[in-house]
Design a protein around this nucleic acid. Structure first.
Length: 489
RNA sequence: GUCCCUAUCGUCUAGCCCGGCCUAGGACACCGCCCUUUCACGGCGGCGACACGGGUUCGAAUCCCGUUGGGGACGCCA
């Protein structure tokens, strides 16, 4: 009885790419839905590209999304987890080398002494003849004597690709057939003994007893090579599932340099991790339950089924992401929203330390229905913490430069000053009573007051924000606006 | 160039495997109306797609072939 073991094996190249996040999510979901194990392995064999801060940045991305791993390398205060480590490819070099040389001993691979120059010449020749470059096989059948004669000459190790065809039985794409002629005898060990990617992944997947390889379909044409290696090395062949990649809004491969390629870009812009998870899952999978589009990680781990995965690539759509984020913000409790929004407000230099937790919860609550991203809250609440320095020009024309403007503000001032109870309900009642008595439009009274209190034409509901602002401040701001209006006409 | 994958509204998709229930359903976006104290939210309605061409069949979005479009792979990168 074999339990599912799958993995995400990113190369730490600076941050968690949105595409990597998608693959990680689906691996995670597959493992969790099957009661299996999810492994994180760092493919950090490309020495120049691996920096420790890159590793940390990548793990931070996973943590933010809530994707945890059962086995993986040490990270932060977490020790290495799992019995089949190490989980950093760079620490398995000797193992890879030994496996490569084992293939040589078994004659499934061979030493190749061709120089880089020779190969470059072959490649140029192939280009000139407009045919794909394939290794010539010059060193394929060297005799032991010929090899001995090379002495200490440096060599690479090439895999001896067998004749015939290789079929990838892909869980998503179905069976995909390749003629082995498409593949030349590819290199598996560099002259310095380091493994090439293909050997390293296969050795790692084999030794870590990975049962399901779920990855981007950019690897589909690499898979025959991997299957040949699995077989040659005598490892159990995992099941493959190749998922379509995430395209940018223009329909191109999501470039590493593009903003938004880093999942933490979205965090920094005020998107919830719940939103990203929900959005990314929608990009590659649909639920049995038709039309449903809200999912939490916890729900997904029960709902996920591999046969509902899509086969074609999907574009990233910012508009839909915004909408989804707004929906997720509305699902938060006000306390939770408050806690998420406070650091953002602080980062803008606004000091909230004078307010009670209850007050701040109220503040978050009255903005909850209005903001598409967490960051948007700043514009909705800054007037609570600073004086109104200026009025929005357009709104000023509309509410402060009318013949009745002074009258509106005078009414506002009178009602607010006279308010016996400074609550949303009491204020609302007072305004409504005024409207009934005088026939003035409620909107005029409200919008003039809003502009006076906030300086803006948009924001939370007037009575809600007034209650939080406090009577004294509100009355003072109305009075000040009234003075201002008198200077306008 | 060679090989591989893919193809339903502008976007994400349901339906395709097991042809008829499809005058193709939903969501985002867009437009209009309603609600309303602004903005948003919400409600109602509208616009809008089976890439093309051949087959197979009584009947095809659904099956087959081809074309075209899109993506990917062809490293001593991962």
């Amino acid at each position: 009885m074999s339990t599912v073991r799958c993995r995400i094996a990113p190369s730490p190249s600076g941050f968690l790419h949105i595409g990597t996040a998608k693959m990680a999510l689906f691996n995670w979901l597959f493992a969790r839905s099957q009661g299996g194990t999810f492994v994180l392995r760092l493919e950090d064999t490309d020495a120049e590209r691996t920096e420790e801060e890159y590793v940390a940045a990548m793990c931070e991305g996973f943590k933010w999304l809530g994707i945890d791993w059962d086995e993986g390398p040490p990270f932060g205060d977490e020790p290495e987890k799992g019995a089949l480590g190490p989980y950093r490819q760079s620490q398995r070099r000797d193992q890879h080398h030994a496996e490569g040389m084992r293939l040589v001993a078994e004659d499934k691979a061979y030493r190749c002494f061709c120089s880089k120059e020779e190969l470059d010449a072959d490649r140029a020749q192939a280009d000139a003849e407009k045919r794909p470059f394939r290794y010539s096989g010059r060193c394929r059948n060297l005799t032991p004597e010929e090899i001995a004669a090379k002495g200490e000459a440096s060599f690479v190790v090439r895999f001896r690709v067998p004749e015939g065809e290789t079929v990838v039985e892909d869980l998503v794409q179905g069976p995909v057939k390749f003629n082995n002629k498409e593949f030349d005898d590819f290199i598996i060990l560099k002259p310095n003994g380091d493994p090439i990617f293909h050997l390293a992944v296969v050795a790692d997947d084999g030794l870590m007893k990975i049962t399901h390889v779920v990855r981007g379909d950019d690897h589909l044409t690499n898979t025959p090579r991997h299957i040949m290696l699995f077989n040659a090395l005598g490892y159990a062949l995992p099941t493959f599932a190749h998922l379509p990649m995430v395209l940018d809004e223009a329909g191109k491969k999501f470039s590493k340099r593009m903003h938004g390629a880093n999942v933490l870009d979205w965090r920094d812009e005020g998107y919830l991790p719940e939103t990203l998870i929900n959005y990314v899952v929608m990009l590659g999978w649909t639920s049995e339950e038709e039309g449903r589009e809200f999912f939490t990680l916890e729900e997904l781990r029960h709902l996920f089924s591999i046969n509902r995965l899509n086969k074609s690539a999907a574009r990233f759509d910012r508009k839909k992401l915004d909408w989804l984020n707004g929906q997720h913000i509305r699902m938060l409790t006000p306390e939770n929203l408050r806690d998420r929004v406070l650091p953002i407000i602080a980062a803008k230099g606004i000091d909230t330390s004078g307010k009670s937790p209850e007050w701040l919860t109220q503040m978050a609550s009255i903005c909850q229905e209005k903001i598409p991203t967490l960051n948007n809250i700043v514009d909705y609440i800054d007037f609570f913490f600073s004086e109104v320095e200026s009025y929005d020009p357009k709104a000023e024309n509309k509410y402060f430069r009318q013949a009745e403007s002074a009258a509106w503000l005078e009414a506002d001032l009178r009602m607010m000053s006279a308010a016996d109870a400074w609550t949303h309900d009491a204020l609302k009642a007072a305004f409504e009573k005024e409207v009934e008595a005088t026939g003035v439009k409620l909107g005029s009274l409200v919008n003039a007051a809003r502009l006076a209190l906030t300086g803006k034409p948009v924001g939370p509901g007037l009575f809600e924000l007034a209650e939080l602002l406090g009577k004294e401040t509100a009355v003072a701001r109305i009075a000040r606006a009234l003075e201002h209006v008198k200077t306008l006409s």
